[in-house]
């Protein structure tokens, strides 16, 4: 697995650039990752990212768009506005989590 520098820190990532170690994430890193994919982080964005981080702790897997809607309380439509085109993937990328499953 490659190691890259984000926001002045060394972090491990997979071949698609997703962080692979939960503990290596920080809010500064999230901001840097968001900038790379041209997302301007607002409170609404943070609400989802924080939900994903917390949810992962108990579920041990990344919440799907559907779960962000039903448990996190942000409608899928809103997720598409905040993280255009590929919300599930972009939210996971910024939150330093694996891509959500459902792709098998």
């Amino acid at each position: 697995m490659p190691v890259i520098e984000v926001a002045g820190k060394q972090v491990q990532v997979n071949e698609e650039g997703f962080l692979t170690v939960y503990e290596e994430w920080s809010e500064e890193i999230a901001l840097a990752l968001a900038k790379q994919i041209e997302i301007d982080m607002t409170d609404e964005h943070w609400k989802i990212i924080k939900f994903l981080r917390e949810d992962y702790k108990t579920q041990k897997e990344t919440a799907t768009s559907r779960r962000v809607q039903t448990v996190g309380g942000v409608p899928v439509k809103e997720q598409f506005v905040l993280f255009p085109k590929k919300p599930a993937k972009k939210m996971a990328y910024i939150a330093g989590l694996p891509k959500p499953k459902g792709c098998v």
């Binding site: 071949e15 698609e16 650039g17 997703f18 790379q36 994919i37 590929k86 972009k90």
Partner: peptide, 8 residues
Amino acid sequence: EGEKVNAG
């Protein structure tokens, strides 16, 4: 080689 897809 895999598929390298950037999240962006």
